[in-house]
């Protein structure tokens, strides 16, 4: 089941550097969760192949429960694939998160017992940076994410969107070369999501990092990424890899362009049937 790389009929030519080297790759990966109690084993993912090109912005969309988050965890080294191999910068990924990979989770992962500033400094302190370097990087990241006025506040005093910025800043200060985002804006309202999307694009351009974004929002995937991987219902595989063809300099205003509408429409036509399969599957599971 090879994924076909197809360009949108009327989309502009791709602006992504297709000759850039492969940065991270997943080959023949499957993930099967063993049986627990009365539950039979669950084949969550794959077999699946994916090459992430250095510096690209890749989004994964798919029906709920299709294994999107499992893919991210496997890629991050947070969980081991049942079969297949994962490599990052040419090194096999196994057992632990490689240096240079940062993850932002869907759930609020800010530490409620630390101030915003200390939250952002957490990873740097673990990595043993000296105090002046920590101060420099944290101050910059806190400013970059618009958190300067709240540096000494505790996460509980902030809104959900602000807390997610804290988590992004905490990942950012470690200067990851591969950033994995698992529905980071899932809990936010639509306007906040668009603005956070702009900031994510700005961050991606400034850092030059490779980004993999998991999302359930088709418009978010279409707006932010260079390529969108549309996944099937469980066990998740790529049905199609869609090139968006956006220029590197872009922001949320592209949602008003015609090609944006066609792109989301195309994604939905790919996923409609799969989503129906997934929700029917889930209803069948509930007794």
């Amino acid at each position: 089941m090879a994924a076909s790389v197809e360009t949108m009929p009327d989309a502009p030519k791709t602006m992504r550097d297709i000759h850039a080297p492969v940065h991270a790759s997943v080959a023949g990966v499957t993930r099967i969760f063993p049986a627990v109690g009365e539950q039979p084993p669950v084949h969550a993912l794959g077999p699946l192949d994916l090459d992430l090109v250095k510096g690209e912005f890749f989004a994964v969309v798919g029906p709920s429960g299709c294994g999107k988050s499992t893919l991210l965890e496997v890629l991050a080294g947070l969980s081991a694939p049942t079969e297949g191999s994962v490599t990052f910068e040419g090194q096999p990924v196994s057992g632990q998160v490689p240096d240079g990979v940062g993850v932002v989770f869907q759930e609020d992962a800010s530490f409620p017992w630390l101030t915003v500033w200390d939250n952002v400094a957490f990873g740097l302190r673990r990595a043993g940076f000296d105090a002046s370097e920590i101060t420099r990087r944290v101050d910059y990241a806190v400013g970059f994410m618009g958190l300067a006025d709240f540096a000494q506040a505790y996460p509980a005093q902030l809104s959900g969107g602000m807390r997610q910025r804290v988590c992004i800043a905490r990942t950012l200060v470690l200067q990851p070369r591969l950033i994995l985002l698992d529905e980071p804006f899932g809990a936010l309202d639509q306007q906040t999501r668009l603005l956070m999307g702009d900031e994510l694009l700005r961050l991606w351009r400034e850092t030059g990092a490779t980004v993999l974004l998991i999302t359930h929002a088709l418009d978010e995937a279409a707006m932010l990424s260079d390529r969108v991987g549309a996944m099937s219902a469980r066990p998740g595989r790529f049905i199609e890899l869609v090139e968006t063809g956006w220029p590197r300099e872009r922001d949320s205003r592209i949602v008003s362009e015609d090609s944006f509408g066609r792109l989301t429409g195309h994604l939905w036509s790919l996923l409609r049937e799969e989503s129906m399969k997934a929700s029917g599957h889930q209803m069948g599971r509930q007794k």
Binding site: L78, Q96, V97, G102, F105, A109, G123, R126, A127, T171
Partner: peptide
Amino acid sequence: VLLKVGRMNRMSALQTAALIKLPS
């Protein structure tokens, strides 16, 4: 998710206990 943050920072079991589990 907080324990995953610990793994992301490649913390040892002892560090995770002291810096994440205990305060949480």
